[in-house]
Computed example of a mutant assay.
Amino acid sequence: MMFDRGIEIKTPAQIQTMRAAGLVVGETLELLRSAAVAGVTTGDLDALAHDHIRSRGATSNFLGYHGFTGVICTSVNDEVVHGIPGSRVLRDGDIISIDCGAIVDGWHGDAATTVAIGEVPDEVLELMRVTEESMWRGIAAARLGGRVSDISHAIETTIDAAGDYGIVEGYTGHGIGSEMHQAPDVHNYGKPRRGPKLVKGLALAVEPMVTLGGANTRTLADDWTVVTTDGSWAAHYENTFTLTDTGAWVLTALDGGKARLAELGVPYGGD
Rank of each mutant, 00 (worst) to 15 (best):
K191N: 12
I72M: 02
K191H: 12
G138I: 00
L32C: 07
L29Y: 08
E207W: 00
G109A: 15
R143N: 07
T228N: 05
N188K: 05
K197Y: 14
A141I: 06
T244P: 09
F3T: 10
E133C: 04
V148L: 04
A112M: 04
A38F: 06
G173E: 05
I98Q: 03
R193T: 14
A162D: 04
C100L: 08
M2Y: 05
R88K: 11
A38D: 05
L45H: 06
Y268I: 10
E119M: 12
N216M: 15
K191V: 11
Y171I: 15
V168S: 10
Y65C: 00
V148W: 00
D271H: 09
T229K: 14
L31Y: 01
G26A: 07
A111Y: 01
P267Y: 01
R88H: 11
T225G: 04
A203W: 05
T17I: 13
T131Q: 03
T59Y: 02
A183W: 15
I95E: 00
D51F: 05
V71M: 08
Q182K: 07
V206D: 07
D4E: 13
T59M: 13
L264V: 12
N216P: 06
G213Y: 10
V148T: 05
L48A: 08
L23V: 09
L23F: 11
D99F: 14
I103R: 03
A215D: 12
H153N: 14
H66D: 14
Y65I: 05
A112T: 06
H174G: 04
L198K: 12
T42M: 11
K10T: 12
T69K: 15
V124E: 07
L63M: 12
R260M: 13
D164E: 15
T28Q: 15
A183C: 14
A35Y: 00
V130K: 03
S152W: 00
G170A: 11
R54V: 15
A112V: 04
D78I: 00
P208N: 11
D222K: 13
A154N: 10
A235L: 10
V76G: 03
M2E: 14
F241M: 14
A141W: 00
G256L: 10
A234C: 06
T242Q: 02
Y165K: 08
A13Y: 14
A21R: 03
E132T: 02
F68M: 12
S87L: 09
E238N: 05
V104M: 05
V226F: 00
G256P: 04
R91V: 13
R56T: 09
G118H: 08
D160R: 15
L198M: 09
F68D: 07
E263Y: 05
T225P: 08
R218D: 07
V104C: 14
Q16I: 12
H66E: 15
D223V: 13
T242M: 10
I159H: 03
I15F: 03
V80P: 01
Y237C: 08
A116R: 14
A183P: 15
G190K: 02
T113L: 12
M209P: 04
I139Q: 08
E30G: 15
D255C: 04
C73W: 03
N216G: 10
I95T: 12
N216Y: 15
I72N: 01
A58H: 01
D4H: 15
L251K: 10
I84N: 07
G67P: 07
